[in-house]
Design a binder for these strands. Structure first.
Lengths: 340, 340
DNA sequence: GTCGACAGGTAAAACGTTTTACTAAAATCT
DNA sequence: AGATTTTAGTAAAACGTTTTACCTGTCGAC
C-alpha cells in the first residue's frame, strides 16, 4: 500500500533546492525568459518522474477560475442534448475544461434553483438552454452579474446575448415545401404551445410557406407537459379525427412526432398513402420506423463545436477584457426517407 | 451594474464584529453547543440577507474534499447511460455533490487518459463502467491508491470491489424461455465478442437454457467496434443466410438489436412469423417498431439510485474509516410485446 | 570605476476556508 | 471562598497555488 501523501510544489522546492516561485513559473510555462534552460529541464524532469500534478482547488482559489463549465440542458437524457453533451465534452477536455451537466426539465423554477447552486461555486461559464420565462434571470446573469453565458437552442429578442441556434424558420419552410412537392395539399403542423424562439419560428416557417401556396392552415399546439403523455396523444387523435382531410403532418419536435406516430399506428393510418410525415430532429427510431420517417436534422457535431468553442473564446476574450457577442445560426439538413 | 465583489467570511466577520471561526461553525452547522442562540441567529440572518455562499475552492483546498463525483460511462450519449446519468444527477445534487461525466467508448486507453486527467483533480469518487482490459488499472485504483470506486454494469471476479450490476444470466434465461414458449425451436443468440461480465453472462444464460431444452445452439458474436457499422450488419445478414432455419433471435444489447432489425427489415423477413425477436435493454424505438419488440428492460431508476446512494454511502463510511463493499445485483424486467 | 541594463531568480502576500488549541468569564461544586 | 467545569467564543496555522515586487550578480559602455 503506497504512501499516499500528495506531492506539492513545496516538496519539489525542498527536494530540488529551487524556490516555489520558479517551480510555478515552469509548471505554467511562464519560465521562458526568466529561468535558465538547465533549471527548467531539471524541474520538468523531476515533475515527470514523480508525476506531480498541481492541486486544482488551490489554483481555483488563487486565480478565481475553476476551469469548469456548466451545461444546463433542457433534458440531458434526451438524445439530442446528450449527443451535444458528448461532443462538447471532448473538446472541453482537450482545452483543460470540465463540464457539469444538469437538466431544467424546461421549468423555470428548476433552472433558478440550479443556477443558485452553481453561481457561487466557481463556475467559469454557463451554457444554457433557457426554459420559458427565464429572460429576466438571464438578463441579470449577463448584464448585472457579468457571467459568461452562452445560450443554446433558443434566443431572446429583447436583449443582446451570445447564442448558438438553428435556422428553424428555414427548416420548416423546407419541410413544408417537400411535403407540398410530394403532392400533399392539406398539410398540418403539430407543434408546442410556447413562446420559445425555435418553436415559434418553426410555426412561422410553416404558416408562411402554407400562405405562399395558398393552402389552408391546420395546426395543433400542445402544451409542453403533454408532449409525451397519453393526454397529448389524445389531442393528436381528436385533431386528426376532426380534420380527416389532412394528408400531411409536419411535427415540430422529435418527441412530438413519436407521440404522433403512436397515434397514427394505433389508428391504422398508412404512411405515406394516407398521411405524409416529416419531423424536426433526427433519431434512430425514425430511420427504423416503417416506413422510415423524413426529418429536418440538426447538425449536432457542428452545434456542439460552435457552442464549446464559442464559450472558450468568450472566456479568453473576457480575461483580455474585450467582449464581443458570439452569435451563430446553423442550417438544418433535410433528410428524405419514405414517409411522403 | 452591481458591485461584484464576492462576500467572504472575513467580510461578515468585520461587519458583525464576530470572529471568522464562529461564522464558520455556524455556516457548517457545528455551532449547536458552542455558540449562543442569539449569535447564531444574527449571523444566519445576515447570511440570508446578503446571500453569502462559501467559496467551494477554498473549502476543497482546506478539506481535501471537492464534493465531486466522476461518472465514466461507456458512452454518455447512449440512451441507457444518459438516462442513468440524469437520475443520478438529481440525487447527487440534493446531497451537495456535482457529477462530471465522460465517455470511455469502451477503449482502455481512453479510460486511462481520462482517469489521469481526473485523478489528481480532487475528485471524491469515481463511478466507472470499465472497458475491457481495465482490471489492473481498476485494482490499482482501489487497492494501491485507495480511491472510492463504484463499478457499474460489469464486475470482475479476480478481486473484490464495489459494484451495481444487473442479473444478466437470469435475464437471458428468461428471454430464451419466452421465445421457446412461443413455439420457437431454433433460437439464435447474437452477442458481442467480449470478456466483460454482462456479455459473457448473457451468453451463458442463453446457452444453459438452450441446453435445458435440448435445442441446438446458434450464436454470432460481433466485435465491439462493429456493432453499429455496416460491417456488423453484414455479419448478421450472412449469419441468417447460413442458418435459414433460425426462427428466433435473442439480441444481447439494444444497439445490436437495432443493427439486426435493419438487416431483418432489408431482407423483408416478417416478425414474428418468420422470426421471433427479443432484445436486452429497452428503448423507445422498440416500442414503436412494427411490430413492437419484446425486451428485457433494465430498471434504470433503481440502478441509478443504487449507484449514487451506494457511492455516497462509501464516501461517508470512508471518512468514518469503516469500509465495507457495496455490491448490488438487480433483476431485469421482461416486457412482452408483439415480436414473437 | 560608476552607471544602467539585464539575466536569473526568490520572498512573501494573498486567495477563503477549516480546525486545533487556547482564553476569559460565568456557573457549579465542595 | 477557592477550585473546577462549562459556556461562548477567538487567534492563528494550514491547505497549495499565483503573482508582485524585489534582489543579486554580471556585463558592457562611458
Amino acid at each position: 500500500m503506497k504512501k499516499n501523501k500528495k506531492i506539492s510544489m513545496k516538496d519539489i522546492s525542498k527536494e530540488l533546492g529551487i524556490s516555489i516561485t520558479t517551480i510555478s513559473f515552469i509548471v505554467n510555462k511562464k519560465a521562458e525568459n526568466k529561468i535558465s534552460k538547465e533549471v527548467i529541464k531539471k524541474v520538468e524532469d523531476y515533475i515527470e518522474k514523480v508525476g506531480y500534478k498541481p492541486n486544482s482547488s488551490a489554483q481555483s482559489l488563487r486565480t478565481g477560475r475553476s476551469k469548469t463549465i456548466v451545461f444546463m440542458a433542457e433534458d440531458i437524457s434526451d438524445p439530442f442534448f446528450s449527443a451535444i453533451a458528448k461532443e462538447m465534452e471532448t473538446i472541453a477536455f482537450n482545452n483543460g475544461y470540465k463540464i457539469i451537466y444538469c437538466s431544467t426539465e424546461n421549468k423555470k423554477e428548476r433552472a433558478v434553483e440550479l443556477l443558485n447552486l452553481f453561481k457561487d461555486r466557481q463556475v467559469d461559464a454557463f451554457i444554457i438552454t433557457p426554459p420559458e420565462g427565464f429572460e429576466n434571470e438571464l438578463r441579470k446573469l449577463i448584464y448585472d452579474e457579468q457571467h459568461v453565458i452562452m445560450v443554446f437552442d433558443r434566443y431572446f429578442d429583447d436583449f443582446k446575448h451570445n447564442y448558438v441556434v438553428l435556422e428553424n424558420y428555414k427548416g420548416t419552410q423546407e419541410a413544408t415545401a417537400s411535403l407540398y412537392n410530394s403532392g400533399k395539399r392539406n398539410i398540418a403542423f403539430i407543434g408546442i404551445e410556447s413562446n420559445l424562439s425555435p418553436l415559434k419560428q418553426r410555426f412561422e416557417g410553416y404558416k408562411d410557406k402554407i400562405g405562399d401556396y395558398g393552402l389552408k392552415e391546420y395546426s395543433l399546439l400542445i402544451q409542453f407537459e403533454h408532449i409525451k403523455t397519453q393526454q397529448g396523444q389524445n389531442y393528436i387523435k381528436s385533431f386528426l379525427e376532426t380534420h380527416p382531410e389532412i394528408d400531411g403532418i409536419l411535427f415540430a419536435t422529435n418527441n412530438l412526432a413519436i407521440s404522433g406516430l403512436r397515434v397514427i399506428k394505433n389508428k391504422g393510418l398508412k404512411i405515406p398513402e394516407d398521411l405524409g410525415i416529416i419531423s424536426f430532429d433526427d433519431r434512430d427510431v425514425f430511420e427504423l420506423f416503417t416506413p422510415p420517417i423524413s426529418v429536418i436534422a440538426q447538425p449536432v457535431p457542428d452545434l456542439a463545436e460552435e457552442l464549446i468553442k464559442g464559450t472558450l473564446k468568450l472566456l479568453k476574450t473576457k480575461s483580455a477584457n474585450e467582449y464581443r457577442f458570439y452569435q451563430k445560426s446553423l442550417n438544418g439538413k433535410l433528410i428524405i426517407r419514405k414517409s411522403f
